[in-house]
Design a protein around this nucleic acid. Structure first.
Length: 288
DNA sequence: CACTTGACCTGTCCGC
DNA sequence: TGCGGACAGGTCAAGT
């Protein structure tokens, strides 16, 4: 799932579904001891009510009435799937989840006292979930170094340009993926934003003009806004617990469109490797 | 120090 | 069909 728009979509769904619910029990896989020491789970999680669901960068926070929070990073393949007490009708995309979860990718199951469940699934096990005092969250290393929220009204073009300038000798794609520059951009929206600004991903940050960076700022925000509006991108059959499926991929201009026509100039989109990641470009309009 | 590369995992897809 | 390798919506540690 998860870049900023996907995590924000999960956040909105969870906020609608679990705020006010009380945690009845928690089962986690013993391999990595999620989400925390058993005594903390017993004391600060079981019996706690969910008071809020927040997001910072790609990190979700489920705040609890005990002053603790579940802090979650989905990394590459993490999912939070809510399964309600009401059966969906046959044929509904979520119908099968009721019988199929938990499955082998389920790392944590949270059960609520009304019989509903929230499953943290993560095929590749890169993701994590930690139970922490809410006030301690800003002190974890990730929060200490993460950059500003790109869609915040406080985040101006000049901030973007100044932050990019801290990484002059790296390429612009790596800089966009660097969470300390701006929070929440990942591989999909980096490629989409660079295409929008007609910037070749391998360009060194120091080679960009102020105009190019300003255009990139505008394109990046517009891509992120559209993606949030569309519920993010889904490349599998996964749908969230509200039955909504992210549709941004229907609007993607380059991402996973190699071999197809550039919607701007008609040239054939290519897939290359930049900053260690698969990277989609129009070789004609994203000039060196 | 800034920057790049591998490691962390499992599953899937693609070519032989 | 079987098998090896590349690759995947992210981040961190270790290397240059």
């Amino acid at each position: 799932m998860p870049e900023l728009p996907e995590v924000e979509t999960v956040r909105r769904g969870l906020a609608n579904l679990i705020i006010g619910k009380v945690v009845r029990g928690e089962v986690h896989d013993t391999e990595k001891g999620f989400p925390n020491a058993p005594q903390d789970v017993q004391q600060f999680l079981i019996g706690a009510a969910v008071t809020d669901v927040r997001r910072r960068a790609k990190v979700l926070m489920i705040d609890l009435s005990t002053g603790y929070s579940l802090v979650i990073h989905l990394k590459m393949t993490g999912q939070l799937v809510f399964v309600g007490e009401t059966r969906f009708g046959a044929g509904h995309p979520n119908d099968s989840l009721i019988n199929e979860l938990p499955d082998k990718s389920t790392r944590v199951t949270l059960s609520f006292n009304d019989g509903t469940n929230l499953y943290f699934n993560d095929q590749r096990k890169f993701g994590w979930m930690r139970l922490l005092p809410t006030v301690e969250i800003p002190n974890i290393p990730f929060m200490q170094k993460v950059g500003p929220e790109p869609l915040s009204t406080d985040f101006k073009t000049s901030d973007f340009i100044q932050r990019l300038a801290r990484r002059p000798k790296t390429n612009i794609k790596a800089a966009l993926l660097d969470q300390s520059v701006v929070a929440g951009i990942g591989n999909i929206y980096a490629d989409e934003s660079l295409w929008g600004a007609k910037i070749q991903p391998r360009r060194l940050v120091s080679s960009l003009t102020e105009q190019e960076m300003a255009l990139l700022y505008t394109e990046m925000r517009s891509v992120m806004n559209l993606a949030v509006e569309k519920g993010g991108s889904s490349n599998s059959t996964y749908v969230n617990a509200e039955g909504k499926k992210g549709s941004y991929m229907d609007f993607a201009r380059v991402f996973r469109r190699e071999g197809l026509e550039c919607p701007r100039c008609g040239a054939t989109i290519e897939k290359v490797r930049v900053a260690g990641r698969g990277t989609h470009i129009c070789p004609v309009c994203q000039v060196i």
